[in-house]
Amino acid sequence: MINLIKKWLISLGSPPLFFKWASKILPWFFPISILILLTGLIWGIGFAPTDYKQGDVYRIIFIHVPSAILGQSIYLMMAIFGFICLIWRAKLAGMFLRSAAPIGASFTLIALVSGAVWGKPTWGTWWVWDARLTSTLILFFLYAGIISLYSSIDNKQKGDRAASLISVVGVIIIPIIKKSVDWWQTLHQPSTFTITSAPSMTPDMYLPLLICVIGFYSILFSILLNTLRAEILIRERNTSWVRQFLNNQIKE
C-alpha cells in the first residue's frame, strides 16, 4: 500500500506524467468548477435573503470572503511546495510556486479591493487600519516580493529555489506579523469607525457562501493545472516528449 502511494507520488512529480494527468482531468473539471462557482454566485447574489442590518451591500461577501481565504491558503500551499522544492529539488514543485504566486497575489488584491468597496457604504471609508486589513495588505506585499524575486533571476531553477526559500521563511514569519499587528492595534486606537459585525448568518446565507468557497477553490485548481501545463511545456521544450506532443497537436 505504502509502495503504491509512493509510486503514485513519484509519478505525479514527473513533469510528463503530470502533464498527461492534468490534460485528462482538465476538460471535465474546468466546466464543473465553472458550474459550482456560478451556482454559488447566482444563489448568493440573486436569491439569498437580504441582511437586515446592511441591506444588499453585504452580498459582496460572496466574492470577498472566498478570495481572502484563497489568498491565504495559496501562500500556505506555496510554502509547502517550496519546502518540497528545497529539500527534494522537485522540479514540479518549483513550477507550482511560479504558477501559484501571481494567482495568489490576484486573489489577495481582489480581497482588498472588494473589501474597500464593501467598506465605503458600511464604514463610510475605503480603508480602515484594522488588524485584518493590514495583515492582508502585508500578505499582498509578500506576494509582490516573491514575484519580483523570481522574475529577476534568469536561471529558472535558481529562481524557483530562491522563491521557495523566501516563501518558507515568510510562512514562519506570518504568524508573528499577525500577532504584532494585533498588538499594534491595541496600542493605537484612533479608529472612530467601529467595524460592524459581519452579518449573522442563517443557513440560506452561509450555504451559498460555502458553495462560493468551493467554487473558488475548484476554479483555482483549474487555473493552476492549466498554467502548470503551460509552464511544463515551456521548461521541457527541448525534450523529445514535448516535441512529439506538439507534432501530434499540429497534425490534429
Binding site: V169, G170, S180
Partner: peptide, 14 residues
C-alpha cells in the same frame, strides 16, 4: 528591500 521589508513589519511594530 522589497523582499525583506514586509518581513520586517513585526520588528518595526515591536
Amino acid at each position: 528591500a522589497v523582499i525583506v521589508l514586509p518581513l520586517s513589519v513585526p520588528i518595526l511594530i515591536l
